[in-house]
């Protein structure tokens, strides 16, 4: 496999950076090479943030941000109109959005391969909240696994368990189950 690049857009507090890292680690479990990193700015709760995961079969040499991603993951649908979110998007791009809307209802400048899941509702249902903010990162990874097939849901679950290892067992399992639920509930519009 050549380079496969994923860009996460979220708001501070939603866990985009941790999500990018867990996804990368999940691909490592399948013997892929990966990079996971963030666009570090002046982070604060609610501000738009970006994080990135690169995956390949061989050593990854490139060390820049991602401008032409194969997949764009949007943790907050209110970010859809921000120019950087649609940068590099084309008809082949997988776009995975956290929204109650169906893929057909999403209007963008180009027509990418959209899939949607209501991750915020899942987070509220099962109680994945930090300081009152629904943390949707692990949930969206279930959706990404299904939408792109870049990694299996089993590896995502393993990586979530490892990535959240410092949290109580019950919280970890809630995250794992929520990821599976997003995998099942994903609406695919292509």
């Amino acid at each position: 496999m050549n380079l496969f690049e994923i860009r996460f857009h979220g708001r501070g507090g939603q866990g985009a950076v941790t999500g990018a890292k867990i996804l990368g680690d999940a691909t490592r479990l399948e013997n892929k090479h990966f990079q996971a990193f963030a666009h570090y700015g002046a982070e604060r709760r609610g501000a738009p943030v970006m994080a990135f995961t690169r995956v390949a079969d061989e050593t990854i040499r490139i060390h820049s941000y991602i401008y032409d991603p194969e997949t764009i993951v949007i943790l907050d649908e209110t970010l859809l109109d921000i120019p950087s979110v649609q940068e590099g998007m084309n008809e082949d791009t997988f776009v995975v959005i956290n929204t109650p809307q169906a893929p057909q209802e999403i209007k963008l400048k180009v027509k990418p391969k959209i899939s949607t899941v209501d991750a915020t509702t899942i987070a509220l249902d099962v109680g994945i909240l930090v300081a009152g903010i629904a943390v949707v990162n692990t949930i969206m990874l279930g959706a990404v696994a299904r939408a792109t097939s870049i990694v299996t849901i089993e590896s995502v679950k393993k990586a979530i368990r490892k990535g959240l290892a410092e949290l109580p067992e019950k919280v970890i399992e809630t995250n794992v189950e929520a990821a599976q639920r997003a995998y099942n509930e994903l609406q695919i519009g292509y």
Binding site: K21, G24, R28, F34, A36, F37, Y40, T59, I60, H63
Partner: peptide, 12 residues
């Protein structure tokens, strides 16, 4: 090692 580009990037 380059700040952020290496220090804060997870890799194999």
């Amino acid at each position: 090692l380059d700040g952020f580009v290496l220090t804060h990037t997870l890799e194999n």
